[in-house]
Amino acid sequence: MTGLRLALAEYWGDVWEAWNEFWFAPTAPAALSAIRVFAGAMLFYTHLVWSFDLSAFFGPNGWLPLDLYARERGYDLEGGHSYMWSLFQHIQSPTLLWTIHIVALVCFFLLTIGLFSRTTAVLSAFFAIMYATRVTPGAYFGLDKVNCMLAMYLMLGPCGARYSVDRLLNMRRGATGEVPTSTWANVAIRLIQLHMCAFYLFAGLGKLEGQTWWDGYAIWRSIASSEYQSIDVTWLGHYPHLMNLLAHGTVLFELFYPFLIWPRFTRPWMLATAVGMHLFIASCMGMITFGLAMLIGNLAFVKPATVRKVMDPLARRFALLLLGDRAGQSD
């Protein structure tokens, strides 16, 4: 019995250690900071586009009037009470609506450039959820889910530690040393990673419920949809075997992403496939913002050292341009 007890104690000790390492090992905040730059820009653009039709979508009347919204929000549609809430449910005045919109856009912009990063990250998550909730259902799609996910996790870690105005201001005050590693940067990155795995896993499982992802016609249905099409690639129809392989490859990629993205030998292949798939969706099916947002999420699987190799030279140029000698050797 003592042997069994020791073995169990060792097992649980190992589990705790692995758990600790997975969630709480401090990591360099480079990847999180890079995600902040791109996700912030995506949030800014996404919400800037709402400006064309702000009152029509977010006002009390319009395409999605509030009374209909209250019913659709599912107060009893599914047999349960909805706890979804949007600030825009309570906004009647166009002036107030525009004021909130401008404040939100300023927040997203500040998040992108990394000024008051933690504060603007919290506010950006709040606003992103408020906008998405108000147009759900009605005008939402996958982009809103990815936007809200990225904004929500950015606020958990030091997303402005690098590639930010905050960093430049710190350097100006003489803090030109190495940016410290952070446990919360790791927590935020891990949550983005796990959320990305959920996206792909359930996208793959959902496709298994259909017929066309099995018989290969799904790619044809995707490229032949005039309403989605932005570049005509129906010439693929002359290569049915290629279309079938793309359909099967898509399902396999999505189903296996949550497993093969973790081992370092398979990770580059999964990321390369994600880049190919999302760029195809972005360019040929017109969902540029959604494709790019998913790629931003995939950045969470790129190690900070790799991110730094790409981002640091650019950041250094900015720092030298703005601070001159005070930028030192750091980024």
């Binding site: 090992a25 360099a28 990155i189 990673q193 190690k303 050292a305």
Partner: peptide, 13 residues
């Protein structure tokens, strides 16, 4: 490539 911090930035096991 590696995960966000596991190999490249976490302290050695």
């Amino acid at each position: 490539m590696s995960t966000g911090g596991k190999k490249g930035d976490a302290p050695p096991r």
